[in-house]
Write a protein that binds this DNA or RNA. Structure first.
Ligand SMILES: [Mn+2]
Ligand SMILES: [Mn+2]
Ligand SMILES: [Zn+2]
Ligand SMILES: [Zn+2]
Lengths: 140, 140
DNA sequence: TTTTTAAATGCAACAATGTTGCAATAATAG
DNA sequence: CTATTATTGCAACATTGTTGCATTTAAAAA
């Protein structure tokens, strides 16, 4: 059951030429098993015996290599989600948006039917960041 | 020239039942004169002889009363902009988006022609936050 | 204008979050 | 299995923001 995520994590790390260390495997497995974006506070709880610094360095490594991304960041917590294959070592490529349910606090990556497009005359838009807050299906 | 912003600031403060203290007037005047959203670092520079704590408390007061809003927040800096009249003591009501030019670092509030709408089945969207990064007209 | 009083300020101390240098340790290539 | 190199843990530091409290200031009352 956890083995599945564990093996998956190892594969991802090898693909991106990152050493498959215990902490990295644990972080990826955790987020993978969590299904929705996982708040840092929960990751920390689960890895309570891992040094704070190591966790930060691990998250930074995974962010840089395009394995995870910041899905939401409020004053309270920062949520991390696994990247899809479209993200590479050199660039994140996200065309989705992030939704936070204000009831259950869950944060998810959502892919709306109509792609969000914004343009203003005279400006060149390189990247767009869209996040929404509301009530999720289960809480409604 | 600065008098104008100064008087404007006093008016805004009175409207929202905030005491017209020196720091508050200065902060509002500064942002008002800055035209685009002003980074905290610059506000701090301009108010170097004001206590750090006072500045934080001032910004919080202005945020709570709907006089200013956070326009952009990167790891580097947080940008503050004046609110329009639609924001009140009790709720911010922003239907605009925030643009940051990655060349000149300027952050502006923009009102695209087509209003951005996002919906996913099963979710109730209360608020939408859209920010864009790119190149502004002057830098293009 | 002067007095009163309630709120804002400055200071010191604290808290939370993240970063850096370096010696000890663990992962992987040979 | 051994050698090599990256990762880890620890201590120390940095940055950002918050809290309690005595002093000062703004604005209302006299
Ligand atoms: Mn996402
Ligand atoms: Mn704005
Ligand atoms: Zn929910
Ligand atoms: Zn520009």
């Amino acid at each position: 059951m956890l083995k599945k995520h564990h093996e998956y994590a190892k594969g991802l790390l090898k693909e991106r030429n990152l050493k498959a260390t215990t902490t990295r495997i644990q972080v990826i497995s955790l987020i993978s098993a969590y299904k929705t974006a996982m708040p840092l506070s929960k990751i920390q709880q689960s890895l309570a015996n891992t040094d704070r610094v190591t966790l930060y360095r691990t998250l930074n490594a995974l962010l840089e290599k395009g394995l995870i991304h910041k899905a939401f960041s409020s004053g309270e917590d920062t949520y991390y989600a696994l990247c899809s294959d479209s993200c590479s070592t050199h660039a994140h490529q996200h065309d989705h948006i992030h939704f936070k349910c204000k009831v259950c606090q869950m944060v998810t990556c959502e892919y709306p039917e109509e792609k969000v497009v914004v343009s203003f005359p005279g400006f060149k838009v390189d990247s767009l960041n869209v996040s929404a807050v509301g009530v999720c299906g289960r809480c409604a």
